[in-house]
Structures are given as structure tokens and as C-alpha cells.
Design a protein around this nucleic acid. Structure first.
Lengths: 154, 154
DNA sequence: TTAGTTGCAAAAGATTTGCCCGGGA
DNA sequence: TCCCGGGCAAATCTTTTGCAACTAA
């Protein structure tokens, strides 16, 4: 999750982006963006919707979708490139990676210069231009291990 | 895509797995598995369905889903951990990674011992047990670059 | 004023489930 | 006979779209 200072900067960036695109700064856009800046649980659209509703009770789900996709196009939020039953969004757009619990689905962020810099096999260059890399580490998280200790059946 | 020899071995593994589970070796199961062994385009369920239909015209889509999920549970096929509008499946269960074209969605496999062995930041261990790692490299593939050369608008 | 935005409702798709029939052990 | 597995159809759930009313600039 971003610090208060970072969140302020990101909101300023958001306002400038709207202005430079000739787009309106609406309460809906602002709140959707603010929700993503203020959490680190990578919520899917319907969870963002629920959280924004606390402030804007009559916002609709399709508006949340439209705003999320617009924010993504603008590079203001990041859609997680992980497999999930639903698309998940992240307010942190800096290069980083994710640990995903294969049991409960919890997602944790981590940064790794090594991963960001590691040289890829030569054939990867031949596939095309490489813009972004994302490492997904999966396993059973600490909480789930406690409930179902290693060695336990099923 | 696996060599003929590897495909034979995998089919044998499949038959043994069915036997050891007391499950029947049905044409539907065999064909779904065979389709995944014989392609390298990581098809989603409906594409697997179309391909199996060439041999078993009256198979139903829900059967394909049930078989795919069973194969996945058994570790006989791999569900790609990448973000997509649909779940995608891979007959190759060895550790490997993927390049994904952000334009056309094409997916290419690659192997990297370096990625498989790179030391992860210490906090990752604290998240829980790590079972698997998957690197997704995204960018614009060669074909798409030709259609829309670098520097072109849009 | 007015064009970009939103909310509502319905559509579109992918995935899952209930139920019954058919075939193999 | 008994039971696993499959087909059909409907349900469920997420995401997208059409459209008229609204509102920030």
C-alpha cells in the first residue's frame, strides 16, 4: 500500500492526466482511483464497487468497470496478469511481482531487482518486443498452512 | 509441443493414473488429453471442445470442462496462471514460462533455468510455502509489430 | 451550453450444476 | 445389478453494451 505522501502525488498525477486528456474529474473516477491507492489486497471490480459505494451509494457496477479499464489504459492502475476467476486491480504501477496462495487466493506483493534484470533466454527476444515481466510465485500461505499443517491429508 | 515419444509416455502415464484411481479410460478423456499433448497454442476450453469434436462429434462442452479440471487436479495438464478472458490449458507440465503478446494474445513457451533457480527476496519465504514460479513476459509479438511498426500511432 | 459521463437494464459469454440415461464391471 | 461418466439444459456469475438522462467544465 502506498504512503499518504505517495497517494497525494498519485492523485495529483490523476488530475493532471484527466486535464491533459480533456476529461472530467468526476467523483466516481476520483473515488475508484482512491480506493485502489488505499488498499493492498488487489480487489476485483465488484469489491472496488462495494468500497466506492460507501462514499457514492448510487454508483453502478458498470461505471466502476469503465473507470477501471480507463485507468488501466492510462497506466494509472495495473491489472494483475495472474489467473483468477475475476480480473484484479492494483494501485501500484511500479514493476513488482506477486505471491499467490493456491488455497485461499491471498495475494502479496514483492519487489525484486534480480527478477527485473535477469537475462532472458535468446528465443524470447525472437518472439517480439518485451515490455514487461511479471513473476508469479504460488504456494500455500502461512495462514493456510496453520489451518492445514504440512503432512495433513487433503 | 511434445515429441511423439513424449506424447506416448504421457498417454501411458494417463492410463496408469486412471487405473490407479479406479477411473475409466473413456474416449472423451483420452481425446481431451491427446488434443492438449498435440498442440502448443494453449487453447481455452471451447477450442479444446472444437478439436475433440472432430473425433467425437457428440461430446458436450461441460464434459470437456469436467475432464480438463480433473486432468489439472491430477497434474496431467497445467492451467496457465496468466490473465486472460478465458482459462487456458497446456499439456506441458514441466516448469516453464510464457511470452504473451499484449496485442493479439498469442502465447509462446520458453524455459529458463535462471528464472527457476533465482533466489527470491527473503520476504517471499515469510508469505508461506513456495511451490511453483511462473514468469510472464509481455510485449508486442513479431507479427503484430509488422502490422503496426514501432513509431506508428495507436 | 454541451459533449463527455453516468445509471439502469439487458445482453453476452464463460463456467458450473442438476438430473437422468447408458454402458462397463 | 450397480455405479461411474456423459449429454442436455438451465443456472450462475462476470463482464460488456445500448441508451437516455445528467453534469462538470
Amino acid at each position: 500500500m502506498l504512503s499518504d505522501e505517495e497517494q497525494k502525488q498519485r492523485l495529483e498525477e490523476f488530475r493532471e492526466r484527466c486535464a491533459s486528456r480533456g476529461l472530467r474529474i468526476t467523483p466516481q473516477r476520483t473515488e475508484v482511483f482512491r480506493v485502489l491507492l488505499g488498499c493492498d489486497d488487489h480487489p476485483p471490480a465488484d469489491v472496488v464497487f462495494e468500497r466506492v459505494r460507501e462514499r457514492i451509494p448510487n454508483i453502478s457496477l458498470d461505471t466502476v468497470y469503465r473507470i477501471l479499464y480507463w485507468l488501466e489504459d492510462e497506466g494509472l492502475v495495473f491489472r494483475l496478469p495472474i489467473s483468477s476467476d475475476r480480473f484484479r486491480f492494483d494501485g501500484d504501477v511500479e514493476p513488482h511481482h506477486h505471491y499467490v496462495c493456491s488455497d485461499c487466493g491471498a495475494i502479496f506483493d514483492f519487489y525484486s531487482d534480480e527478477v527485473d534484470r535477469i537475462e532472458l533466454p535468446p528465443e524470447v527476444m525472437s518472439f517480439g518486443r518485451t515490455d514487461r515481466r511479471h513473476l508469479q510465485v504460488s504456494g500455500m500461505c502461512r495462514d493456510c498452512l496453520e489451518v492445514q499443517p504440512p503432512g495433513a491429508a487433503g
